[in-house]
Design a protein around this nucleic acid. Structure first.
Length: 423
DNA sequence: TCTGGGGTCCTAGGACCC
DNA sequence: TCTGGGGTCCTAGGACCC
């Protein structure tokens, strides 16, 4: 019994999503911006060819965008999330076991498919996803997740591969490792790549051939796992069910600098409320809440970075309670005279909601809170996020993000129409 | 003017206990 | 001469991912 994984990755996912509903964009350069229209986080091949780097602040790329008529979009996570679900549903037809690894990637267990023509099977996956969703994908197949990632990368680079690369033959694997820079291996970031270069390790093949003791010493057991996977020894299984989060964070940069306490209170209340909703969705309660505040580090003006954590007397996922403690934390943190750029709320020490230890001094009617939250979640899930909120979350939202170039929510629009109809 | 928003895991070292 | 030692918990920091 030998292991076999496919990694399927959507090509330039956000840019491809925009293109599906706007075919005129075929062959045109596209970029998609991060929240707040700050950085470029996705590029079509044509935009890549223009030399626009990933993560570039949008204002820096302004010239090249104008000069070449690059189409620019604010990110539309509702659309991308929905398209992602369609791709994953399609892929699920091809394996009994599928791990949704990120919004645009999935690992497939192909352990039972060794007898088949793997190239043809992978091609079939690719064509089916394209036909059913409009999204182009690349497929890498190999005996470990790390090698499947590597195969996927090469499948995109090689014209001959045409979006599919199967690495099962030892000679092909070695050649692939030779052609891959060590920093392009899954699990090797910039820092390790630099460090390894100092030891003469430049390619994935060099890394695979390094001794275990050396790897463990310089890269801990995590690095050792990566190296073993490069040798074809599976160290990472498929994760079929996403484990519950251990921390949940909601944070945003503001559309413009914020100075006043009341606006910060409003923003913080919204982040706390999102955290509470995320907690309830995974049926967890939090034992601690942290609020943080930051000024704009890119500007030459007084800087203030600080955070405040409050341990909760009884773990909770009630929006009302979290709003209260988030506000206390903010009041402890806030200093006048700064131009704030970003704030956020983190909930940690999460535990299952059915394992909460009640405090003897508890004065809150938890059943009542729970029923209220259930009603709130139900309303917001059928009528759209934030249709029902707490007063402290405000209504004008002057702190909110910029997203000036957002495409319509093509795939979820019907819900909007329904809403109008019912009114 | 304008610079993203989430997460995970591991290790080292200090505090504390017996 | 000998200058404890092992276990556990917590935190900060460093690395990585998309």
């Amino acid at each position: 019994m030998t292991s076999l994984f496919a990694l399927v990755d959507c090509n330039n996912f956000y840019a491809s999503c925009e293109r599906v509903f706007n075919p005129k964009l075929e062959g045109q350069p596209i970029v998609v911006l991060s929240n707040n229209d700050g950085c470029i986080i996705a590029r079509s091949n044509e935009a890549k060819a223009l030399g626009i780097p990933m993560g570039e602040p949008a204002f820096k790329a302004k010239d090249v965008i104008e000069q070449h008529g690059v189409h620019v979009f604010s990110s539309n996570y509702t659309l991308y999330g929905d398209m992602s679900a369609r791709v994953m549903q399609t892929l699920a037809q091809f394996t009994p076991n599928l791990e949704v690894y990120s919004i645009d990637e999935a690992f497939l267990d192909l352990g039972n498919f060794y007898g088949r023509d793997l190239n043809q099977y992978a091609q079939e996956m690719r064509e089916t996803v394209r036909a059913w969703t409009g999204i182009p994908v690349s497929v890498g197949v190999a005996p470990t997740k790390t090698l499947a990632k590597l195969a996927n990368r090469l499948s995109k680079k090689s014209k001959k591969a045409a979006g599919v690369l199967v690495l099962t033959d030892e000679r092909h694997i070695e050649e692939a490792l030779r052609r891959t820079e060590v920093g392009d291996v899954w699990g090797i970031g910039r820092r390790y790549a630099q460090k390894l270069a100092g030891f003469g390790i430049h390619t994935a093949l060099d890394l695979r051939n390094a001794p275990d003791t050396f790897i463990k010493k310089h890269m801990t057991v995590v690095g050792l796992r990566t190296v073993r996977e490069l040798r074809g020894e599976p160290c990472q299984d498929l994760e079929l069910e996403a484990p519950n989060k251990q921390n949940i964070c909601t944070s945003r940069s503001f559309g413009r600098p914020i100075t006043g306490l009341s606006e910060l209170q409003e923003a913080t209340a919204n982040y706390a409320s999102r955290c509470a909703a995320k907690l309830r969705r995974q049926k967890s309660c939090t034992g601690a809440i942290t609020v943080f505040l930051q000024t704009n580090q890119f500007r030459d003006e007084p800087q203030y970075f600080n955070s405040k954590t409050i341990a909760l007397p009884t773990a909770t996922n009630s929006t009302l309670e979290l709003l209260h403690y988030a506000n206390l934390a903010l009041l402890a943190l806030y200093r006048e005279g700064y131009r704030y750029k970003k704030s956020g709320v983190i909930v940690s020490e999460l535990r299952p909601q059915n394992q909460v230890q009640a405090s003897l001094l508890d004065t809150i009617d938890r059943d009542k809170h729970q029923r209220l939250m259930q009603a709130l979640d139900k309303l917001n899930s059928s009528w759209g996020r934030d249709k029902v909120t707490c007063a402290s979350q405000g209504t004008t939202r002057p702190w909110q993000l910029k997203c000036e170039k957002k495409s319509p929510c093509y795939t979820t629009k019907f819900k909007e129409l329904l809403r109008v109809g019912v009114r």
